[in-house]
Design a binder for these strands. Structure first.
Length: 260
DNA sequence: ATGCCGCCAACATGGCGA
């Protein structure tokens, strides 16, 4: 089963690119972040015509997440459990293929947190604490679990072109990275890192300052796997070529393939 | 120290992103 995550930066503005990528990449499951529309405005017909079922947790103008699947989607949860959130940043569901093992999938858009310190950074750290609590609960079920999305966290210096330039940014502050480690250390596997130990495997390049042609990127979009999912991991990758397309999102798709 | 670029709502330009 191929499972992918992509911060599309407006599904309406990006529709042609997203459909093109979906046809080429053919993921069984895709999680989108920053759809930037309410549920009724999501272009679901275009995806349903390609054989996908669609579940959204949308919001006007900002944020918004969606899960698409070629297999039945069950047990949908909208919003991070245990966290009263004004912003649409979390959707979770069970992907249940006929006659095959199910996979529980979380699609998340973690708060940016800038400027730090401040209210926005406090919100980010509180969100990460609530996510950790939710994942601890999910891990008790011992399922194949995929927790993926735009984490807005640069895990390590090897994941950023210029660590010094990002030292005081909410994405790279020690507190953010410590919260990331606490999450991973619950027993999750970073799918891309497990398959590729090379440094500088970026998933985001800013629109500004020629970041893409200079390869001034950061790795902030991640797929984390429970032990039961990690045992099935065949390959994982980053579709960096998509960043070069016309009217590209500033993020690119990240994917993994699980056996069975 | 700030803007760069792009999207949104809305119609001018400010909020937001990372």
């Amino acid at each position: 089963m191929k499972i992918a995550t992509w911060n599309v930066n407006s599904v309406k503005a990006r529709l042609d690119s997203v459909l093109t990528w979906m046809k080429q990449a053919e993921p069984d499951v895709a999680g989108f972040q920053e759809i930037k529309c309410v549920d009724d405005a999501f272009p679901r017909f275009e995806f349903e015509a390609m054989g996908y079922k669609v579940e959204t947790h949308g919001q006007k103008t900002y944020n918004g997440v969606a899960l698409l699947s070629k297999h039945p989607i069950e047990d949908v949860t909208r919003g991070l459990p245990g966290f009263a959130d004004e912003q649409a940043r979390y959707i979770e569901a069970l992907i249940a293929p006929k006659g095959k093992a199910a996979v529980r999938v979380v699609c998340l858009y973690l708060p940016n947190g800038n400027p730090a310190p401040g209210d926005k950074y406090d919100y980010k750290l509180a969100w990460m604490e609530a996510l950790q609590a939710r994942v601890r609960q999910l891990l008790k079920w011992e399922e194949r679990l995929v927790v993926m999305g735009d984490y807005n966290v640069i895990p390590a210096a090897e994941d950023v072109h210029d660590p010094a330039a990002w030292a005081k940014d909410a994405l790279f502050l020690p507190q953010s990275r410590a919260a990331w480690r606490r999450l991973v250390h619950l027993g999750l596997t970073d799918a891309v890192r497990a398959c590729n130990r090379q440094p500088h495997q970026y998933t985001f390049w800013d629109y500004q300052g020629g970041a893409w042609p200079k390869n001034n990127g950061i790795r902030i979009d991640h797929i984390l796997l429970s032990p039961q999912a990690a045992d099935r991991l065949e390959e994982a990758g980053i579709d960096r070529h998509v960043r070069g397309w016309d009217k590209a999102s500033d993020h690119v798709p990240v994917w993994c393939r699980l056996k069975g």
